[in-house]
């Protein structure tokens, strides 16, 4: 694959900005600030452009141009949201906000009920005996005790004293063990991100060498 000078230049810019960000590991410095401001500015600009070309243009403007005037309702609601820019008419912006919150809440009810309540309760109902091996029995007991004690911890309308207090204490342990496992898992994922960045530096060097004709 042929490598152009522009490609190599882009790779070096990326590498230099990556190093600027890594310099934050030492302390806050002008190089980090430069990279930070470029990152924030480019991200904001990028999101503004993608917001227009991937959301507004195809979902609103193109449909209005096709004569589908139902989408004018969305345009009006969007316009109302912008009224917050004028303090005198800022109250107008609350209407589309309420509309959005209501729509999302209603839309998510079925999904939440199904995935986060019924399916979870159903999966917690397990056999405590008559399992083919003792490890399955032990696992099921851990699931049952873990769920019940964790629920006890999130019980807010009684003081955590007596039986509820003891159960809640066990629940905290269950939560902390879960968090520990999640922490370790994500740290591994972060290390793989670091490996990816190091390999990017390697790519920079490989492509530069190829462009210079020394490999």
């Amino acid at each position: 694959m042929a490598v152009s000078g522009l490609d190599v230049f882009g790779l070096w810019i990326g590498a230099a900005l990556s190093l600027c960000i890594f310099s934050f590991l030492y302390r806050d410095n002008p190089f980090y600030r430069l990279a930070e401001h470029i990152f924030v500015g480019v991200s904001a600009g990028y999101y503004m452009c993608t917001g227009y070309w991937q959301v507004l243009q195809p979902n609103l403007i193109a449909r209005l141009q096709d004569g589908d005037w139902r989408y004018a309702i969305a345009a009006v609601l969007g316009g109302m949201l912008l009224m917050r820019l004028w303090p005198k008419y800022a109250w107008v912006g609350r209407w589309p906000l309420a509309f959005m919150v209501g729509i999302y809440a209603g839309y998510n009810i079925v999904y939440t009920m199904q995935a986060q309540v019924l399916a979870q309760v159903s999966d917690t109902i397990v056999s405590l005996w008559n399992n083919p091996d003792w490890t399955a029995t032990l696992k099921n007991w851990i699931i049952l005790v873990g769920v019940l004690t964790s629920l006890a911890y999130f019980y807010f309308s009684v003081e955590h004293k007596g039986v509820i207090g003891q159960a809640a204490r066990v629940g905290v342990w269950v939560l902390m063990i879960t968090f520990g496992a999640t922490f370790g898992y994500t740290v591994m994922a972060r290390v793989s991100l670091l490996v990816g960045r190091v390999m990017y530096f390697q790519d920079v060097w490989t492509h530069t060498a190829r462009w210079l004709g020394i490999s």
């Binding site: 806050d28 930070e36 924030v40 500015g41 991200s43 904001a44 999101y47």
Partner: peptide
């Protein structure tokens, strides 16, 4: 407002913390 991109936001917020 910093930016919609989560890591861009994190970079900006971290900068505020340090400064």
């Amino acid at each position: 407002y910093l930016c919609d991109e989560q890591f861009g936001f994190a970079a900006g917020a971290s900068g505020i913390m340090m400064r």
